[in-house]
Simulated assay, not measured.
Amino acid sequence: MKIIDVKVEVIHIPMKKPFRIAFAVQDHSVNVLVKVMTDEGIYGIGEAAPFEPVTGENSATVLEVLKLFKQGLIGMDPMNIEGIHLMMDRLISGNTSAKAAIDIALYDLKGKVMNQPLYKVLGGYRDQIVTDMTIGIDKPELMAQEAKERVERDGFRILKVKAGINPADDIRALTLIREAVGPDIRLRVDANQGYTVNDAVRVLKEFEKIGVDAVEQCLPWWDMDGSKILRQKVDMQIMLDESIHSPVDAAKACKMDAADILNIKLMKCGGLYPAEKINAIAEANHVNCMVGCMLETKVAIAAGVSLVAAKSNITEADCDSFMYAVDPEMGMPGGFTIEGGVYTLSQKPGLGLDLDF
């Protein structure tokens, strides 16, 4: 089997409302779909969801890089996933969402060749997973109202609350959210690099009283030393996200005892192949993982939830972003069903999506 063509399509994803985190506000996303085609008529679909503050890319750069990759891919065996990653890494450093798009398409194709759903190709541990729902930064009262709706109307049992701009507002928002949703809903916080070490220690002590499970990326991405200090100062799980792009980053964080949980994102690390490496490194060091997401369609979300379902060491999921879109399905039926935060994965081959272009 040989790759004979690579097609791309740019998609614009308007959101239901602007989504605010510590360092950005988004009201839409511009992503790139990829179709890797073979001489046997089997194809795979992938997606790039670039985000400049994290991956250093946008849709225009992704398109240029995919042109470069296409030259190298033509004639290659799509099952040679390691060889294709080596080719992409030799051609250009970084550009991880572009690499993830090719990677996801290759795994979709592999599942189709094997006639197995992707979660079984990757490990097959379970066919259901639970995701959280994210509450963006807003006035604390509005955040509490949204949290209550997500729990009572939509059935979510885990909420991830964005923070990191104003510590006093963060404490008030979490206090109001806890009051609104009650004691049985799990809460975690994502500060998106918004705190200093001193601020983080002070704020996290207050979060302890509120019953927050975990806090994600309190400090700038480069400050793993500070993250280690936080683990020693507070009684909750410390998660790293923007600090973890590669298996090398994961090894460094584990060696330094800088995290209890690592947040794997396919767009940060370059796809499922390096994501499996990150999880293996974490597992060998008794560190659990979560799979998160950028603003993605069901293509990349299906890949992410398949990885969660495949691995026992990946204990958490933050794979909710497609639900922020005005049209979450976007003409992409299949892949999974979701009810109250519980994903049930498709048993169809590959990503399980009924999608072609």
Rank of each mutant, 00 (worst) to 15 (best):
M1P: 09
I4V: 15
K17A: 14
F19Q: 04
F19R: 02
F19I: 01
F23W: 11
F23H: 11
S29Y: 02
T38N: 03
D39E: 15
I42G: 09
E47F: 02
F51Y: 15
P53V: 07
T55I: 08
G56Y: 06
L66F: 07
L68R: 05
Q71V: 10
L73Q: 08
G75L: 02
M76D: 01
N80P: 05
I81S: 00
I81M: 02
G83C: 09
H85F: 00
L91R: 09
T96Y: 04
T96E: 01
A98N: 11
K99E: 04
A100N: 06
L109P: 05
G111V: 07
N115I: 03
P117L: 01
P117Q: 06
Y119R: 02
K120T: 09
R126K: 15
T131W: 11
I137R: 03
M143S: 12
E146W: 12
E149V: 10
R150L: 14
V161L: 11
V161A: 10
A163P: 01
L176W: 02
I185C: 09
L187A: 10
D190P: 04
Q193K: 05
V201N: 06
R202G: 00
A214N: 04
A214S: 13
E216D: 11
Q217E: 12
P220G: 02
D223T: 00
G226F: 01
K228T: 13
S243L: 01
V248A: 09
A250S: 13
A251F: 13
A253L: 12
D257C: 08
K277W: 01
I278N: 09
M290W: 08
M290E: 14
V291I: 14
G292L: 01
M294H: 13
L295N: 13
L307V: 10
V308G: 07
A309D: 07
N313P: 04
D318F: 00
S321A: 15
M323S: 12
M330Y: 14
P333T: 11
I338G: 06
I338V: 12
E339M: 04
V342Y: 00
T344P: 05
S346F: 09
K348F: 06
L351E: 13
